[in-house]
Every structure is written in structure tokens, then in C-alpha cells.
Computed example of a mutant assay.
Amino acid sequence: MQLIRMFSVLFLAVSGLACGNPHVHDEHEVVARDSIKIAPGPSDTQIQFAPLPSSVDSVPIDPTLGYFVGDLGGGVYWVTDGAYSNMFLVSTHGVIVVDAPPTIGHKLLYAIGNTTRLPVTHLVYSHLHADHIGGASLFNASHPTIIAHVETLSLLASLSPRDPLRPLPHVTFEDNYTVRVGNQTLELSYHGPNHTPGNLFMYAPAQRVALLIDVVFPGWAPFSELAMSGFIPGWTAAHDVLLTFDFDVFVAGHVARLGTKNDVLLQKKYIEDLHDSCASAINGGFNVTAAIGPTVAANTGNAWAEFKAYLRVATQTCADNTTSRWLGILGAVDVFAFENAYRMVDALRIEYDVLGPFAVS
């Protein structure tokens, strides 16, 4: 295997490191040694993260209610519990609900019930993940028509056993679908896999409101591992797709504030910087021989340990460079800096074909 051959060469080059080769940089020794520790590091309760910038300013959550309902005009409302958010549209004939996050849970029923007496007639799944639709069964009593992309149906149907909290959709589509209930219109479209296969773009044209879940986090850096996304090229491209919609406000599915086009553009720049920083790290941004030397010496023949050391240093190099430029601009950019860089390094290697020392020579 090319990997083993490469590390065999590196092992010969660094076999003297354990004896105190003076050319090894201390910073790489620390990272490499840490990469083979078995004991976990300090918990996050012991880490002081950077102060949050004003970009994260959010709506106030009434502690008694535990949720906030915002009127976006024209019968469109959004609901947040501070961590998750979704929206619903009140028409002359019934209510269209988009997603049912279980963290909001029964509070979503209260939010809708305190806004209208009309029943929920349609429920749209943005994608299959339980943290966004795991409360769908709460609407079983009103028997709504459940709508989702065909990929979402396929993935939910493949679960064994099937999850009763996420009823299977009744209506599916491949490219575009328009939900019309009374005087409300919600346009659904699919532009290929991004966060997950089947993750939808939604747009209320009359109110100029867009919804896209788990891609942009208004005012904040993305959640861990780029929002646990499955296909980073599609997830990255989703920023540009979202910008083609003529919206004033968008609902992001997370954080306690709405988004604007400026939020999309800002995160797009962050992702581009992360991409470039990680590509630079892979393509010679650190001394590979020095970085993995202690791990090679301590784990003869263990290619997994050696490659973990390589990935850790490449990731940390990228994370440090990117974070230094974005602290104070996006909230919590340092919290998941390593995890987001790690996901980007992996995407560069296996999806973008940026292989650095592992490319065909």
C-alpha cells in the first residue's frame, strides 16, 4: 500500500527522533505525543473559550414559556427554543409546518395553537435527521399530509426498526414541489446532496422568506464537523444556491436569530478560508517527518496510528490559521475549530482530491 510505503520511508528518516534529534520542533512533538494518548483531554467545562461577538445577538426566550414565536408577516411565523428553530405558515384553510424539532416538542403545538385555531394540514420534512423531525409524531392527531424529498423517504424507510416518531412521508418528489394550502404557497426544491441526501431548499415567495437547515448558522461558526454534513462539496455549494433566492429573511434551523443574505455571504467566506487553509496545510503546511516522528517511533508498523498523527497535525495547522482570522467575527469559531477543520481535511482528501504527500507522484 502506498500509505505503508510512505510511512516506512518516513520511519527510516525519523528513527532517531526518540533519541533526541535536535531538528524536531517542540510544537510538533507535543501534537504527535498527544495524538497517541489514550486518556481524554480536559473537558469543555475546564476550557475558557473566546467571548462571543455581537453577531450572535439573539431573540429573548421567555424562561416560563421556553420558546419564542416571531411574526415574519403574511402568515409566516418562526419558532425557536434558543438552539433549534423551525417555521409554520397559517393559511385560510390550515397550517403548513416545516420540521418538528424534538427539543421544541410540545411547545411547538402551543406556539401554533396560540396563533391560530386552524388545524395542521401539512408537515414538510427538511431532511431525515431526528433532531429536526423527531417531534413529527406530535401531529399524528391532525393527520397532516407529510411531504419530503424521495431520498428522505428512502432513508427513513430503510431504518430497521422504523422510527415511529418520524412517520413516513405521504408525498415525495425529486426536483421541485409546490405546497399550496388556502392562500399560502411554499416552494420546495432539491439541488443535490448537501448536509444530507434529500435536504431541501424552501421558499415562501409572497413573504420573501427562505428556509435551509443545517447549512448556514447566522452569526455563528458552523456546528461540529461542518454541521455533521455528509457531502461537503454539495454543502459548500448550497451557500451559492441559497443566494439565488430572492429573500429578505431565512430560517436556519439552529441558533436563536434569523439570517440575512449578509450572513450567508459571511459564512461562505469563512468556509472558503477554511478550505484554503486546510488545503495549504495538506500541501506542505508543516514538516510531516517531524510531526509524525514520535508516533512512528512508538508504533512500529501501525499505519493507523501514524496516519492519525498526520491528520491531527494537518487539522490543527488549518484550525489555528483559520481561527486566528475569524475570532470576533463569527461566534464560537474556536469551539469547534478542530472538528470543522478535521471534516474539511477529510473532504479535501476524499472528495476534492487534494492529497498532498499521498498524491500520485
Rank of each mutant, 00 (worst) to 15 (best):
A359P: 08
L211Y: 15
T116P: 01
D353L: 08
L330S: 12
G219M: 04
F49D: 00
L108Y: 14
H239F: 14
L327E: 04
V288R: 06
L10G: 02
V9G: 12
G198Y: 06
G284R: 11
N86D: 06
T115L: 00
P40G: 05
T115V: 05
H170R: 15
T315N: 02
D34V: 09
I47Q: 02
D276M: 07
A337G: 07
Y342R: 14
L188Q: 03
D131Y: 08
V181I: 09
Y125F: 14
Q46K: 14
F231V: 05
L109I: 13
T185Y: 01
V251E: 00
P161Y: 12
Q267P: 05
H122N: 10
W326T: 10
V59Q: 00
P51Q: 07
D353G: 08
Y67I: 07
R312D: 06
D26G: 03
T300H: 09
L211C: 14
P197A: 15
L168T: 07
V296H: 04
A256F: 00
L156T: 09
H170D: 10
F338Y: 15
L265N: 04
Y125G: 06
L155I: 15
P357D: 08
L266V: 10
P197M: 08
F358I: 12
F139I: 07
R180H: 08
S324M: 00
Y177Q: 03
A136F: 13
S189L: 05
M87C: 11
S43C: 04
A281K: 01
V215T: 15
Y352L: 08
M6K: 12
D71S: 09
I133P: 10
